[in-house]
């Protein structure tokens, strides 16, 4: 899994560290399927692409608040899909998304 490059003092965090951060800060993620995709998986990215799959409504509104807070100092770019939208587009397979849980496990194994 790519690590965001650049001089170490820049302190940009890796894809798996972002996953750990989001899972720790956003309790509502347990009600959704959450993924990362795009350039951050392979190194430095302009932004951090996140896919959230789940129902609309109050839980989603709560999750958006949590992600907003967690992303205060991160260039998160979040796409929200209903399960039917993801099924139709096969977005997870097409974009080779990694679940945040998988990514977080990589970071924890590295500890």
């Amino acid at each position: 899994m790519g690590r965001i490059e650049g001089p170490p003092e820049q302190g940009l965090i890796s894809a798996s560290e972002v996953a750990v951060h989001l899972l720790e800060r956003c309790a509502s993620l347990e009600h959704f399927n959450a993924f990362m995709f795009g350039s951050t998986l392979h190194g430095v990215g302009e932004d951090i692409d996140i896919l959230i799959v789940g129902p609309a409504g109050d839980l989603l509104a709560q999750l958006k608040k949590e992600l907003h807070s967690a992303g205060e100092s991160l260039p998160l770019h979040i796409l929200y899909m209903q399960p039917s939208e993801e099924r139709r587009t096969q977005f997870v397979a097409r974009e080779k998304c990694f679940s945040l849980t998988q990514l977080a496990a990589v970071a924890r194994q590295g500890c």
């Binding site: 490059e5 820049q10 302190g11 100092s73």
Partner: peptide
Amino acid sequence: MNWQVKYALANFSKE
């Protein structure tokens, strides 16, 4: 250095 400046510089370093 602010986070967004770090990302901008890191991305220009690839360019």
